[in-house]
Amino acid sequence: MTEEDTLIERLRKKDETAFKDLFELHIDHVYRLAYGILQNEDDAEETAQQTFIAAYRAIDRFEPKAKLSTWLYRITYNNALNILHQRKQNDPLPDDESERFIPSSLIDWRFEPEQLLLEEETHLQLEKAISTLPPAMRAAFILRDVEQIPIHECADIQNISETLCKTRTHRARLLLRERLSEYFSERK
């Protein structure tokens, strides 16, 4: 029995400490995806709360073959999209299969990421750049490049094809690169 199996067993038996363990193991990932999609702390907290409670209540329906993390990401993703929908913000799932994006800012960056991150301004610029992406692209970027989840799991979480998942990640990377280049390029 793996540690995850044990945790699931304890959750099924409604062991009170199991809920805390579930939270500690997965909150960072759940919150990052929720915040990535929603770009708002209150909404991300709300999503995290809904996700853990839904997971706890539905634990008997959890497929033992699946990974707990993938399942939680999927619930998070759906909850976050529901909140977006309630907020009636811009369409979270734009038709992103058409139209090519051509990079225009093609000057190398002056510093390496590790150096850039020492400055508060870098974090602000990154947040700003991410917030300009459509939510579905943000989700793809967070899952693939921040959480570093394999493509098939990524597609599964978002209930889309691997091809579309790759396309969204690619677009997200290029758009972020463009926005950040405007700021980090080696200019005078």
Partner: peptide, 15 residues
Amino acid sequence: DTTKKTITLGRLALA
């Protein structure tokens, strides 16, 4: 190069 840097930056800053 700058796309790779973008990915690294995102990961280091957000994870």
